[in-house]
């Protein structure tokens, strides 16, 4: 227990609870990686262009969540920025793709 914890009155860390946390972060990372694999599978399989774009959009969201989980593991704030940027870029990209599928061109 660090002095900061004692001063804040939030309580001390418990070894078994920290172990539970470590395990659940690992399991969550595996699950999110599998979710990304499903999205990639859909991207590769298609069958049509809209299925691939949907797969890509899901892939972006899953990546963002995996980054946040990495941030939890390391206890650092840096991953948050990356997650925010990915969610912004994912949105713009998917909208551009959808426009392209509808009109055959992105900028009218």
């Amino acid at each position: 227990m660090t002095p900061a914890d004692a001063a804040s009155g939030l309580g001390a860390s418990v070894p078994w609870a920290t172990a539970v946390l470590a395990w659940s972060i690992t399991i969550a990372q595996v699950l999110l990686a599998l979710a990304m694999a499903c999205a990639v599978l859909r991207m590769l399989q298609g069958p049509r262009a809209q299925d691939r774009v949907l797969g890509l959009d899901t892939f972006y969201v899953n990546t963002m969540l995996l980054l946040l989980t990495f941030g939890l593991r390391t206890g650092s704030d840096i991953y948050f920025e990356a997650a925010l940027v990915i969610s912004l870029l994912g949105f713009v990209g998917s909208v551009a793709f959808a426009k392209f599928l509808m009109r055959g061109e992105v900028i009218e």
Partner: peptide
Amino acid sequence: APDLPGWAALAVSFFLMAGAIIT
């Protein structure tokens, strides 16, 4: 894993697992 107090570690585990499973 980050060195959290017991209750916080369990709460974080719960919400993280729930989110990952649903995703």
